[in-house]
Simulated assay, not measured.
Amino acid sequence: MPSIALVTLVVDDYDDALAFYTRALGFELVEDTDRGDGSRWVVVRPPGAPRGTGLLLARASGDDQRRAVGAQTGGRVGFFLHTDDFARDHARMTGAGVRFLEEPRHEEYGSVAVFEDLYGNRWDLLEPRG
């Protein structure tokens, strides 16, 4: 059965992106392999995510890709980070310097707040209800 494995996120710098995703968001490093041509294969994922699932951090190559950094979804929330403890993760992420764009909301579908990654991509931190 098909499944989505990796989603590419175009970044300015591998090390800055890796630091943000592992330190501020608490993701784990799955792979960081030098490809021999100045590029790297860098995969991170949230702790406990299924094996094979991850975010591929790809350094921008060329003007078109550089323009897309931070704007890959046209200003919409494009990424959804689920949690089983919203208050815990919101507090940890805030303490790590993650910029939330709103106060937490408690909707019929769960607790949610929009935050930005280091490039301005918008994410939902979401604890689904039930």
Rank of each mutant, 00 (worst) to 15 (best):
V77I: 12
F115L: 05
A58L: 13
S39Q: 09
G52A: 02
R67E: 11
P104T: 00
H82L: 13
L55P: 01
F86Y: 00
G110T: 06
V7H: 12
I4E: 02
V112I: 15
R45M: 06
E116I: 06
G110S: 08
L29G: 05
R67C: 02
R40M: 01
L57V: 07
R23K: 15
T33E: 12
E31N: 05
F100C: 03
L29Y: 00
D117R: 11
L125G: 01
R76K: 14
L9C: 04
P47G: 06
F79D: 01
L126Q: 13
D64E: 15
R99T: 14
S39K: 09
P128S: 12
R51S: 13
G74A: 09
V11G: 03
S3M: 13
R92N: 01
T33A: 13
L101G: 13
F100H: 02
L56N: 03
A113V: 00
Q65E: 15
L18E: 01
R51D: 14
Y21M: 00
V44E: 06
R99D: 09
P104Y: 04
L56G: 05
T94R: 06
E28V: 13
R92C: 01
H90S: 07
Y14S: 03
R40S: 05
E28C: 07
A17S: 14
D34M: 04
Y14F: 12
Y14H: 10
V42Q: 09
H82C: 11
G130R: 13
T8K: 14
V44G: 02
G110Q: 04
D15V: 04
R76C: 12
L18C: 02
V44Q: 00
E107K: 13
L101M: 14
V7F: 11
L118V: 02
G110Y: 05
D117G: 09
A49W: 09
T53L: 15
W41V: 03
H106L: 08
F115R: 00
T33H: 10
G38D: 03
A113Q: 08
L6A: 08
E103M: 09
D13W: 06
E127C: 01
P128L: 12
E107R: 14
L9G: 06
